[in-house]
Design a protein around this nucleic acid. Structure first.
Lengths: 334, 334
DNA sequence: ACTACCCGCGAAACCGCTTTCACGGGATAA
DNA sequence: TTATCCCGTGAAAGCGGTTTCGCGGGTAGT
């Protein structure tokens, strides 16, 4: 059926009776070829079942059609469905634009690690970073002219195109919601405070308090790390230090679940005695009992936005940072 | 710091005082170069900060160092942390072997779709398939000589290297466990029966019954689709048609959670009145209340096995299908 | 001492596509 | 009519490595 050795331009050119240059023009959408000859080329391509060799094409043109998605961490991060969804969004947008996604999961740290090496080897046309722990590599690559997008707000350099969720706004409305429900003493369990997202969510929580006129005690601010365990630990601590806590905003759903587990086990029923709000609207928010009131962020959209920003850059179009809105999803826990 | 235009073999060769052929030999580990000259080359590489252009290398050698990971479905599948973890495993193994992962998520269906096109364009050295709905494309690619690995048991052709979890054994031990706990009437909620995994799990369930001497009524076998909703729906139906059901084996944790939710809401407490066992040992199995007794499959190991099988093929080594063992994790629900 | 090998190494072809450059001829302007 | 442009097109020079082929000299065999 399909020939064992794939045909090349030479073959197409010969059967179509044109030069290789013309074949290239037709296949790359150059309008300047006479319609008749163009059609002859397309016929030949069809007849021979020709598929362009992307590697040769990449070498000659300098464009590989590959975009790296870099997760600056160990592999555990990727087990979080969050990044799977974001990756889906990125991948879909890129695919629609004829690009492909190269996945790299590794601690990025240095400028000379494997990831850095690869990104500089000319094999990708751009890179999208998730979970960035430092801006060093990014700034370095930017200087080399590699198109970049990062998800999450950058630590330092505002010059890098980024997409992010409205962490501040989401946290603000979550906290506000708890207060509106009558909570007098609202604690927060933050995410890994080394991430900008965790800081922004903390700010939103503080802002809501500021507006209400009384700032929370320092001990109501619990520094978690996004893990189920840290949600449990901090809830336990809160029960001991602040028995009258009646509201908790957790920086993600997993910690919220951890907290709820501890509260319920301690005889504090949710939401009648303690109200809990999470962040993300992950699957567990819907499946848990009680179901979780949470701040939804559209993770697939986040990925799509990152992909679009990359496309825009590659096309030399204008672009600016994208901040996606959040939505408070009210369920049973608050 | 780093030069703006990256050096090529020509430059390395000149500064090292050797030919480009020798540079290539050194950089590809050819032993036949005199140690002194080899060292000169390495020095030049170091001094000039040389990074090999992988695209040019790929064109000349025919090897791109890229392995496609194909998820034959829409993007929703990838939001399941299951595949994220498998992908992690694959990616790690490949990275250790100097290869990179190209992620493709799309319905594969036809032989002439975008995915098929890409896989045939010579840009990848091999392909690993997840969630295969048909063997057509795979058989086609195999004929073209592309190294392949599929996760899950193939539908037809046993000739394709694959990795899978011991679905049969896992389901068997889950069902056996329920019986040992005293359950007299054990139902199953299967996964999408179009998948081989769902069939194998059903077989394991049936085998346990066969050995116990009484086969389950047909109506105890509920055909689900791995979704939370289908777990809920079938549990509801079971409550109505078989009020005396005292054990349920669900083909994944999500459906198990759905079933538990319905049972508890209906006043049937888990595990005292109905025992429920899931499959996967996903995160929710640990975080739910009651925590879920389930069949653990090591998904990262699954990915690693797939990666290893690919490496073995590329190296021309022997290989055979890998079946990974499962482990029953006993928690509160059964 | 002479032929037969072997080994390290460089010249050059090659991988398949892109892109520059210049040419021939028809159209337009003077 | 002649000079000037413009346009479609092909020849050919890359892109940056890899690999074959054969040369020169040293070693071994007789």
């Amino acid at each position: 059926m399909a020939p064992l050795v794939r045909p090349t331009y030479a073959v197409i050119a010969k059967t179509a009776g044109v030069s290789e240059a013309t074949v290239s023009r037709v296949l790359n959408g150059d309008e300047s070829v006479h319609p008749d000859r163009a059609q002859r080329v397309r016929d030949a391509v069809e007849e021979l079942g020709y598929k362009k060799n992307r590697v040769a094409s990449a070498l000659a043109s300098g464009r590989t059609g590959l975009i790296a998605v870099v997760i600056d961490d160990d592999f555990s991060v990727f087990s979080d469905p969050f990044w799977g969804s974001v990756t889906s969004g990125v991948s879909r947008v890129l695919q629609e634009n004829g690009l492909h996604t190269v996945l790299m999961v590794a601690p990025v740290g240095a400028l000379d690690g494997g990831v850095a090496h690869y990104l500089k080897s000319g094999e990708v046309d751009g890179a999208i970073f998730f979970v960035l722990h430092s801006d060093i590599l990014v700034n370095h690559l930017k200087k080399q002219g590699l198109p970049l997008v990062i998800t999450g707000t950058p630590h330092s350099n505002a010059d890098i195109p980024f997409v992010d969720t409205d962490n501040f706004g989401g946290a603000y409305s979550a906290t506000k919601h708890l207060m509106n429900q009558g909570c007098k003493k609202v604690a927060i369990i933050t995410g890994d405070i080394g991430t900008t997202a965790a800081k922004q969510r903390l700010d939103g929580y503080l802002q809501a308090h500021r507006e209400s006129g009384h700032l929370p005690t320092k001990s109501l601010i619990c520094e978690g790390d996004y893990s189920f365990e840290s949600g449990k630990n901090h809830a336990q601590r809160l029960i001991e230090t602040h028995p009258d806590v009646d509201g908790v905003f957790a920086s993600n759903d997993l910690m919220a679940m951890g907290a709820i587990t501890v509260f319920e086990n301690a005889g504090k029923s949710v939401p009648s005695q303690v109200r809990v709000v999470g962040f993300d609207d992950a699957l567990i928010a819907q499946t848990s009992r009680p179901s979780l009131t949470t701040v939804r962020q559209d993770v697939v959209a986040l990925g799509e936005a990152a992909g679009s920003l990359m496309i825009a850059q590659l096309n030399g179009q204008d672009f600016e940072p994208i901040i996606l809105p959040t939505e408070l999803v009210i369920r049973e826990s608050a």
